[in-house]
């Protein structure tokens, strides 16, 4: 395979290291929101990997969690609802020297954006997608989301949800993602590891994060998850075993696994796109100069 999937430009270490930090914009999330843990983990992961902020683009859609790009010192694209991934893919193909991270919520990624989610994974585009999954629509003040559990009462489902929830981990396994993890914003240390692993992974890395909404979801709270989550790495799970990953993905109830479900090596889209073998697209020559003979086919 040609060296098409350029890894992020290494930045020399030292006291004046330009690392990703907080921006001058303060998060607007409710006090206690799970998303604080996620932005902290993304920041820590980028710092740990020493990726310069100017080589990072964080792309989001719309929703509380999609405000995340504003809170870090990297480049960002805060687009429209459900469309973070195709924007992120376009950025990667324009300049695959960049580290591209998609962020957003469960409604953004598994509801309105579900189609893009599936297709980005089957392409194995080399980006990291971190979803802040709170099982509720928060910004619109508390309607059911694609991951709300059966029976959950919300403003839009006063007598309880009557649709089966999307299982993001199983969906990712079925769609061909090559790095599939689940974190919990109550455990920033593990989440940092998972996000950092995703960024380092060549191919589509998906990290679904239980990120409780303290205002609108009174069911899936921090306590709810603290009582139920267990770590896959402590349970002897082998992330190279896809059958085991499927079994773990289906676990829900008193015991809910977090950690790395599955990881495999497969050429990324950027590896397989021959045009990108000549280097990042934005550095390649443009126009028809030298290609004038292209007109001959019209004679």
């Amino acid at each position: 395979m040609a060296e098409s999937s350029a890894q992020p430009t290494p930045v020399p270490t030292g006291p004046a290291l330009p690392v990703v930090g907080k921006s001058d914009t303060k998060p607007t999330w409710c006090p206690g929101c799970g998303d604080f843990g996620v932005v902290a983990a993304v920041e820590s992961a980028l710092k740990r990997l020493k990726i310069a902020p100017y080589n990072v683009v964080i792309v989001s859609g719309i929703g509380c969690s999609s405000n995340l790009p504003h809170f870090l010192s990297s480049y960002g694209f805060h687009g429209i609802h459900g469309r973070a991934l195709p924007v992120a893919e376009g950025i990667r193909w324009a300049n695959h020297g960049l580290t591209v991270i998609g962020t957003g919520g469960d409604g953004d990624g598994f509801g309105i954006g579900a189609g893009h989610f599936v297709h980005a994974m089957r392409r194995n585009v080399d980006l990291t997608y971190v979803t802040m999954d709170n099982q509720i629509y928060g910004l619109t003040t508390g309607q059911a989301s694609p991951t709300s559990q059966m029976g959950q009462k919300t403003k839009s489902t006063p007598t309880g949800v009557i649709e089966n929830p999307v299982d993001p981990i199983a969906l990712a396994l079925a769609s061909g993602a090559t790095y599939i993890a689940r974190g919990f914003s109550g455990d920033v240390k593990q989440l940092t590891d998972l996000v950092a692993g995703g960024i380092q992974h060549k191919g589509f890395a998906f990290v679904d994060v239980f990120s409780p909404c303290v205002t609108y979801n009174k069911v899936n709270t921090f306590d709810f998850f603290r009582q139920r989550v267990y770590k896959l790495e402590s349970a002897g799970h082998d992330p190279s075993d896809i059958v085991a990953a499927w079994q773990r993905a289906l676990e829900w109830g008193d015991k809910i696994p977090i950690g790395l479900f599955y990881r495999t090596e497969r050429p990324s889209y950027e590896d397989l796109e021959e045009v990108l073998h000549a280097g990042p697209l934005l550095k390649q020559p443009a126009g028809l100069a030298g290609h004038e003979s292209v007109l001959d086919e019209f004679v």
Binding site: V57, V59, P86, E89, G90, R92, N95, H116
Partner: peptide, 21 residues
């Protein structure tokens, strides 16, 4: 792309990323 929504968003992403799209 998987649909026209993705097509235009990919083009916008590519343009933001630094190429004519």
């Amino acid at each position: 792309a998987e649909d026209e929504l993705a097509a235009i968003h990919m083009a916008i992403g590519a343009s933001f990323g630094g190429v004519r799209a």
